[in-house]
Amino acid sequence: MFEQVFQFLVTGITVGSLYALVGLGFALIYNASDVVNFAQGEFVMLGAMAAIALLSAGLPLPLAAVVATLLAVGVGLLLERFAIEPAAGASVVATIIITIGAAIFLRGIALLLWGKDFHTLPPFSGDAPIRLGGATVLPQSLWVLAATGVLVALVRAFFDRTLLGKALLACSFNRTAAQAVGINVKVMLRLAYGLSAGLGAVAGILIAPITFSSYEAGVMLGLKGFSAAIVGGIGNPMGAVAGGLLLGVLEALGAGLVSSGYKDAIAFLFVLMVLFFEPTGLFGHKVAERV
């Protein structure tokens, strides 16, 4: 029994790491603009699908992963420039609807490029499971954990140690004051979209060897990442990470101990409960001070 639970935990943390990365992307854009970017999941899908396509075009895996990530960053910047920026001054809700439209558009492009088939990446370093206690861990899980750890640490350092990171935070704390000290809010928004797209793409590439990827793989991952960001208190980057891990673990435990058919239901029920009892999220405190 204990071994089984341990196995579920391992699975949960692996999946949770991905939710964390996607949630982090939601938090970044929300911080810079109060907008929930519903195209976040599409960045995940684009990263995975582009890496798969580049690999089959003959690029070595590491190079394919890097180029795919850069491509997604480029798409994120284009999205900001041609869909979000022209709507500057529109209401937050209108902008959110634009991101939903962008998500459908990106999904359509992916469908045209890669069809409806499921694709997969080979694991980064073999698929011989590693025995750990009573549980088995796929080497790819370790990749997921390590990469997530590094990325989260980098994002943290970016906010804690760099002026650019603080400037991005400043935009979310007080946009008028940020402008008054000379921060170009538009540039910060682009930065947020670029970073979010990059984080999403990396998540997609990391998960591609574990699950199959298709043109609509981003929908569910996007929703889960969004849930992670809400659970963590939207706008709190490290809260989104914690929320993602929590969500992943609960989901895996629910799937393992109750029924795998209820996996998604358990995750979303948890989100509803959090919103009901703690509307600002478990680690959120910002909403109360927003006016």
């Binding site: 002026l163 603080k166 935070l169 400043a170 704390f173 007080n174 004051a177 001070e289």
Partner: peptide, 19 residues
């Protein structure tokens, strides 16, 4: 005032020198 409330005094001053 409109200081950046969740940031330290020093960080507020640093951001003042952003340009």
């Amino acid at each position: 005032r409109q200081v950046f409330a969740p940031l330290s005094v020093e960080d507020n001053l640093r951001l003042g020198g952003y340009r």
